[in-house]
Amino acid sequence: MSAIPAPISSPEREWSLPSRGKTGMLNLILAESAIFTIFVISYIFYLGKSLSGPTPVEILHVPILDTICLLSSSLTIHFAVAALRRGKSKAFLFWWGATLALGLKFIEGTAADWYQMIYRENFSIKTNLFGTTYYSLVGLHASHVTVGLIGLSLVFLLALAGKVKQQHAERCEVFSLYWHFVDAVWVVVFTVVYLVGR
């Protein structure tokens, strides 16, 4: 066996690869988008196909305030991450807390809405086809918001304890991608359910 020497001169080229966390999160977002796509398609497909009432116009109230809350929380989480990257932990705590509060307001709004419809107006997932698609789509989104809120509050508690430092900015940014995604999905859901569907 002749081992011919093969010195590979290592040229000190730049070698940079995308960040693992961001790539992973973007992939998760891709998978989640596919799930939402199927639910949105079935919502649109079944529009107006219910055999009995109520119809969307009769029962849905447009949640304008909640929508504003959720969408502005995208801005606040962006400010929070930017603050953390610059090492300003007070500002981070403020903006992150604001995001959490806005998210909570949104989910509280949905909960109140659902309570009103289910218990006062007798409109549930069983009522008709529209009920099935409406509660599934909005519920799927709400469950994603809930997961996001759990994450937000965990980080918030850690930040209160002073455990979130500048070096965690990358992780917080990865999490913020998820939150932006949840907001973006709401834009689609809002358009489909409250603008087109009514």
């Binding site: 998978a31 989640e32 988008s33 596919a34 799930i35 939402f36 796509t37 199927i38 639910f39 079935s42 079944y46 196909k49 219910s50 055999l51 997932i125 069983k126 008709n128 086809l129 099935t132 698609t133 599934s136 799927l140």
Partner: peptide, 26 residues
């Protein structure tokens, strides 16, 4: 993911009384 979504819908039909694939309800 579409399979996961479809399975979720089937679960909604079978457990929560939804009508996704219920031809009697449209």
């Amino acid at each position: 993911s579409p399979l996961t979504a479809a399975q979720l819908m089937l679960c909604i039909d079978r457990y929560l009384g939804g009508h996704f694939f219920d031809t009697q309800a449209g």
